[in-house]
């Protein structure tokens, strides 16, 4: 992946992000933020790779810290978002008891 391709990819991702988010109703803005939190939790994949390529105690410790923080981010983001979205119901559906 050359640097230039990355730059263009980033540009398209910015536009895609704006388009996707503009369509989300204000009703769902809290779950949306929680979901985007979950999505940047993809950093967990980078942290995993960093840990397995680390050399030396300090590098391993740093990567390990990154992996702990990233897994907390990704799991928490998912659980909270799913919990919130489960509660949104239209009027004809009866809430479960």
């Amino acid at each position: 992946m050359t640097d230039l391709v990355v730059l263009y990819l980033g540009l398209l991702a910015v536009l895609a992000g704006y388009e996707l988010i503009a369509r989300v109703p204000a009703l769902l803005h809290t779950p949306l933020m929680s979901a985007t939190n979950f999505i940047h939790g993809i950093v967990v994949v980078g942290a995993l790779a960093a840990l397995f390529t680390a050399h030396g105690t300090l590098a391993v410790a740093v990567a390990w810290g990154a992996l702990v923080a990233a897994s907390a981010n990704v799991v928490g983001g998912f659980v909270t978002t799913e919990r919130m979205l489960r509660m949104f119901r239209a009027s004809r559906e009866e809430p479960p008891r």
């Binding site: 990819l9 980033g10 991702a13 910015v14 536009l15 992000g17 704006y18 996707l20 993809i42």
Partner: peptide, 18 residues
Amino acid sequence: SPAMVVAGVVVGASGTML
């Protein structure tokens, strides 16, 4: 990691917009 680029930048755009 292109997946990280796409996911991260999309979230960046969303956060800016919100």
